[in-house]
């Protein structure tokens, strides 16, 4: 196995771990079912995806990741295909398109990009589910009880996990410098 394939396997495992962590986090810690109307949705996989997108330059590879993981996410967690499958690749292409603006990725930039991506993703899901009548929540309830707490929680977690995750994704992507 050459180094490129090995790095790609590493990236896929990283994304898979983040994928499972989403469900387990929700199940183990944020399972506030019986009381309270705040809804916190852990989005660790989106973190991994944003960090990797900031570092990978190959747009075709990005699209493949987006579509494959979007499909798995939709099928396993939502039971409806077409939410993450479409929104994730869109987010990734969007980030890829504008990342030339940033000279060097640092925590400030990446935090704000993650914030925008998360807002876009959650609002997109809300709009699509609302159109298909999967939910009857109104916009203000969505912003107060779902979007707000989700953004807050995920921002804090992103801040805490930034250094290890960013170093890991640096290591998982940047192989060209050593090999050349």
């Amino acid at each position: 196995m050459n180094i490129k394939t090995r790095k790609i396997v590493g990236q896929v495992i990283f994304l898979l771990l983040a994928f499972y962590l989403d469900g387990l986090m929700k199940w183990a810690f944020l399972n506030n079912m019986n009381t309270g109307d705040f809804m916190i949705l852990p989005q660790i996989m989106l973190m991994a995806i944003v960090l990797l997108t900031m570092r990978i330059d190959d747009r075709r590879q990005l699209l493949t990741y987006g579509i494959v993981f979007g499909l798995v996410y939709d099928s396993y967690y939502y039971g409806i295909i077409g939410l993450y499958t479409v929104l994730l690749p869109l987010i990734m292409v969007g980030i890829d398109h504008f990342k030339f603006l940033f000279v060097k990725a640092n925590i400030g930039y990446e935090l704000s990009i993650y914030f925008l991506a998360l807002t876009f993703l959650q609002s997109g899901i809300y709009v699509l589910e609302r159109l298909l009548q999967q939910t009857s929540t109104n916009v203000f309830d969505f912003i107060t009880y779902v979007l707000g707490p989700t953004l807050l929680w995920n921002m804090v977690v992103f801040f805490i996990l930034y250094i290890p995750l960013a170093n890991l994704s640096d290591w998982l992507v940047k192989y060209r410098r050593e090999s050349k």
Partner: peptide
């Protein structure tokens, strides 16, 4: 046994 809970607002599913 429960494997996970879906991280979504309106599909309250357990796997």
């Amino acid at each position: 046994s429960v494997l996970s809970r879906s991280p979504s607002s309106w599909q309250s599913y357990l796997t």
